[in-house]
Design a protein around this nucleic acid. Structure first.
Length: 652
RNA sequence: GCUGUCGUAGCUCAGUGGUAGAGCACUCCCUUGGUAAGGGAGAGGCCGGGAGUUCAAUCCUCCUCGACAGCACCA
């Protein structure tokens, strides 16, 4: 007799010494039995066919739960895609095929390279396989048998995986009916191919075996899978919509910036984009003033000896740092501002009374990124960091980290980012400084995080070469993660570069250095901002805040008057005096994501009003000129979020 | 950097082994129209760069530069 406790707390009893998920599902109801994909037994996912030999808490997994969807996706990858590939390309060797957010992939070594045109062919084969409704069965095998099975099939990668596994026994092989196809898998899988929903292969890309660039590159086939066609369509539509928010596309539509081959990874800022840049910079300057920072500016081209001393050269060397020969010395285009700030710190004697010193710079840095890594504004070779270095004592670290975390949270909230997360990256393999120093730095940062109440996601081995760091991560339109703000603890550089202060006891001591960036790089942050708002920026950031236009040319004198008043009131305003219909102009300016179009017609001219059409709103609204100006001032001052990001949307 | 795809007018894109096409934008003319495209005409391209194959290359091959996706990298 086995007692099974179901999620609702009810207990069912089953005769015999074993029971399976299938039996449990059947005993509950025919509908559930049909829908069941797998079971959770005492918190562990198992196949429906797995014997349950003792009392347990069991829940039946269907495709309606996130777990069920993931199991189904996994089956699409490991059973359907893998088998389709083997059917079409018998010489292909299978590596791994996990699920990812919204889908799955499979890494395959093809003898002949395949192209994205082949995806259609593979998809067709997959549909054929699913049509067979084959049942999936599992066998449990010894290590030796498993290796033998894959050796026989020429699956070199599977052999490697099993050989190098720490697991001694109990390798699960999943087969499809009597097709001869087997795959190694942790499971569980859906019981039959009838349970596969809607799927689509999405893209093809290279990926290194085991994620190591020293290894050979395999072909990764990506796909997405959903419980039905409707969900699949919705997903594809969502992705399409998301891609429209791409900052490179919107940057063009709004005439913000461009990039070109003569300067890879560098930005030609147009007037509009540079307006955003300057506004953000000004906004951050305001924060710096209130938080008692000094602002400095340091050279771009610096004798590389400084970077040898600081440790940068050893870490990034010729591949990461641009160099130039000037005055018979090799110079580096500065990759980071920190050594320069240390030099300012060192320029006169410092006392413990001076600390903390918060030294900021909108520092223009250059980094020779791997070509394939460049990505619009998000990953550039020349960037402007809203950088600062806080020179302080060990005792001051905690307080400073709390202040910084609060400041970043405040800024992200004001800019309309409700969701971001923080990664804690600790010591990397390539680093400077002793383990004792690293222990101290990591513990210091951890303690400070706790004190500041920051929830962190650990990110082992990804710290800076000089110290551990917090990374404030934002996502772009299609969910890619980008590090923006950062707080890094550095016990190394001040020592290497010989920075001292005189402590209360008269002893010379090295200060601790906290590297920090709030937005990260202005370039990347603007990219994120554009995607976050799909170009519908808050009024204070909008490159063009108002375009004023008449209905007919006769109104142009009034339009120019209104234009002048708005301009004198301090707004970024343009007058559209062209001989075009108002529909045409509205359309054009809305496409260019102008925040507001103000229309002056006969009525408005007579009554000293302006009729406003807002970006993202349906209708229009007429205001007294004075009221309109006051309203805009208020909106800029309060940094109000645009309509699309306000809870109660209203027209104008 | 690696794998794959791509590069044609200012933009978005079609196309062919015999030196090229559309829509939008631009210029001019007509139109004076109340909230997402009024009509007409015109101008505009070394088909990313270099080499090769060919009687002939935008098209085929190789190299190179750049872009896109993913991987790796990421101070």
């Amino acid at each position: 007799m086995i007692k099974i406790t179901l999620p609702d707390g009810s207990i069912r009893e089953y005769e015999g010494v074993v029971v399976t998920g299938t039996q449990i599902a059947e005993s509950i109801g025919a509908g559930l039995a049909k829908a069941a994909l797998a079971v959770t037994v005492d918190g562990v996912q198992r196949d429906l066919s797995d014997p349950i030999k003792a009392d347990a808490k069991v829940s039946i997994i269907t495709v309606d739960s996130p777990e069920g969807l993931e199991i189904m996706r996994h089956t699409v990858a490991a059973q359907v895609l893998a088998r389709a590939v083997k059917n079409l390309y018998p010489s292909a060797k299978l590596a791994i095929g996990p699920t990812i957010e919204d889908g799955f992939y499979y890494d395959v070594a093809f003898q002949e390279p395949i192209s994205s045109d082949d995806l259609e062919k593979i998809e067709k084969e997959m549909r054929k396989i699913i049509e067979t409704h084959a049942s999936i069965s599992k066998s449990i095998n010894s290590k030796a048998d498993t290796i033998a099975a894959f050796k026989e099939r020429g699956e070199d990668y599977k052999v490697k995986i099993v050989e190098e596994s720490e697991q001694k026994d109990g390798f699960q092989l999943y087969a499809q009916g009597d097709t001869g196809f087997v795959d190694l898998c942790r499971g569980p899988h859906v019981p039959t191919l009838k349970h596969i929903g809607a799927f689509k292969l999405t893209k093809l890309a290279g990926a290194y075996w085991r994620g190591d660039s020293n290894n050979e590159m395999l072909t990764r086939i990506y796909g997405t899978a959903w419980k039905n066609d409707k969900d699949l369509k919705e997903y594809l539509h969502r992705m399409e919509e998301a891609e429209k928010r791409d900052h490179r596309k919107i940057g063009k539509e709004m005439d913000l910036f461009h990039m070109q081959g003569e300067a890879p990874g560098q930005v030609f800022w147009h007037d509009g984009g540079w307006t955003i840049f300057k506004e953000l910079e000004g906004y951050i300057r305001g924060k710096l003033r209130r938080h008692n920072y000094q602002e400095v500016n340091t050279p771009r081209l610096i004798n590389k000896d400084l970077y040898i001393k600081s440790g940068h050269w050893g870490k990034f060397g010729e591949n990461g740092i641009f160099t130039s020969n000037a005055y018979e010395h090799e110079h580096a285009l500065k990759p980071m501002n920190c050594p320069c700030h240390v030099e300012i710190f060192k320029n006169d004697g410092k006392s413990y009374r001076d600390l903390p010193i918060r030294m900021s710079e909108f520092g223009n840095c250059f980094r020779q990124e791997a070509r394939g890594a460049l990505h619009g504004l998000m990953r550039v070779t020349s960037m402007t960091q809203d950088d600062a270095h806080i020179f302080c004592t060990v005792e001051q670290i905690e307080q400073e980290v709390i202040l910084l975390n609060d400041l970043i949270a405040e800024i992200y909230a004001e800019l309309g980012f409700e969701s971001y997360f923080v990664r804690f990256s600790d010591r990397p393999d390539a680093r400077v400084g002793s383990d004792e120093i690293w222990d101290a730095a990591e513990n210091g940062l951890k303690k400070a995080c706790e004190a500041a109440g920051v929830d962190v996601v650990m990110n082992p081995g990804e710290g800076a070469f000089y110290g551990p760091k917090l990374e404030y991560v934002l996502k772009d339109c299609i969910g890619r993660e980008w590090q923006c703000g950062t707080i890094q603890l550095d016990f190394n550089q001040p020592n290497r570069l010989g920075a001292f202060y005189v402590d209360v006891d008269g002893e010379k001591k090295h200060p601790v250095m906290i590297h920090r960036a709030l937005l990260g790089s202005l370039e990347r942050f603007i990219g994120i901002l554009i995607e976050h708002y799909a170009g519908h920026l808050p009024l204070w950031l909008a490159p063009t805040q108002i375009v004023v236009s008449g209905i007919v040319e006769d109104h142009n004198p009034h339009v120019e008057k209104a234009y002048k008043r708005l301009k004198d009131a301090g707004f970024r305003v343009k007058a559209d005096l062209r001989n075009e219909k108002i529909n045409y102009k509205i359309r054009e300016h809305m496409h260019a994501k102008v925040a507001m179009v103000g229309v002056i017609g006969e009525k408005e001219a007579a009554e000293d009003t302006i009729t406003i059409r807002r970006l993202g709103a349906e209708g229009q609204k007429t205001y007294k000129m004075d009221e309109f100006i006051a309203m805009c001032h208020e909106e800029v001052k309060t940094k109000a979020l645009p309509l699309s990001h306000q809870k109660d949307k209203q027209a104008a």
